[in-house]
């Protein structure tokens, strides 16, 4: 059997990529379950869940986890309530400048986030929103708009109008039709968008830090502090693995939707 040069080159590139992407993650994973790992050993010398217990028992971790979950749930639900009807309007209603409006969302997202948030934080300072739960909610809500409007809008466009008309026909009003027919029909994309929103809010640092700190500290902020300020590597590793789980689930779920052509449709294609 003859092996082509391109196959060999391709294989080498892939191996390098795998090493580059997988190695750091594997190291973090190993550290999370390692109790002792001294230099010459290739693998940890002592395995165990001790650091999981101690990490999860820390008061700052627990309160941060509670705050992060409360924030993520609030922001995701609020975002859904605000953005889904807007997404539907973009999908169904024809108005002048619809495309431009959709593209402007992209433009806003391309704007340097940090600068924008500093501006907002200054504004919040005078509104006495700095250091409050709802202050963080407001600033994080801004970040979710793009994905919560764009993705569902594409999905709504994919819903056959006849399905809605059939519902109207048997006696459902416009609102009931939207809730009982349109949303369930677009459920996979909406689910993916909500998961992505949840996860991105969970990991969001800039807004939470500028508006919330030092009074309120979210999970990523605690993690950051543990990684940079502690000698024990395991705390950071455990938290990383812990925080990796939701985003991994979200990505698995979103992959199906993003792979379909619904995402492309969001661009008005």
């Amino acid at each position: 059997m003859k092996i082509r040069a391109s196959t060999i080159v391709g294989s080498i590139i892939m191996l390098v990529l795998i090493a580059y992407v997988v190695m750091p993650i594997a190291t973090v994973f190993l550290w999370a379950f390692a109790e002792k790992w001294t230099y010459p050993a290739l693998l940890p010398t002592e395995w165990g869940l001790r650091y999981w217990h101690t990490t999860l028992a820390r008061a700052d971790v627990l309160s941060a986890l509670r705050l992060s979950l409360a924030l993520s749930v609030t922001v995701t639900l609020l975002s859904a309530v605000i953005c889904l009807p807007a997404a539907y309007a973009f999908a169904r209603m024809e108005f002048v400048g619809r495309r431009t409006f959709m593209m402007s969302f992209l433009a806003i997202n391309a704007f340097p986030r940090f600068g924008l948030i500093v501006m907002i934080a200054t504004l919040f300072l005078s509104l006495r929103l700095v250091g409050t739960f709802w202050g963080i909610v407001l600033v994080q809500l801004l970040n979710t708009m793009l994905i919560m409007i764009w993705l569902p809008s594409a999905a709504f466009r994919g819903v056959d109008r006849r399905l809605e008309e059939a519902a109207r026909d048997v006696g459902a009003g416009p609102v009931r039709t939207f809730i009982r027919i349109t949303i369930p029909q677009a459920a996979p994309a909406i689910g993916a968008a909500m998961l992505l929103t949840f996860v991105s809010t969970f990991y969001e640092t800039e807004g939470a830090w500028l508006v919330g700190a030092p009074k309120l500290r979210t999970m990523p902020m605690v993690m950051l502090q543990m990684i940079t300020g502690q000698i024990v590597v395991q705390y950071g590793a455990v938290l990383s693995v812990l925080l990796w789980v939701p985003s991994f689930i979200a990505l698995l779920f979103a992959r199906r939707v993003l792979a379909s052509n619904q995402f492309a449709k969001g661009f008005g294609a």
């Binding site: 056959d160 399905l163 008309e165 059939a166 048997v170 009982r180």
Partner: peptide, 30 residues
């Protein structure tokens, strides 16, 4: 008068069945 308030019922070319409901639920919706 809006469709939901008319005494008319429409059968669509594309059938327009709601795929997130079973047959019973489709018929029972109205």
């Amino acid at each position: 008068t809006a469709p939901e308030n008319r005494p008319t019922a429409m059968v669509f070319q594309s059938h327009a069945l709601w795929t997130h409901m079973n047959v019973f639920e489709n018929i029972a919706f109205g």
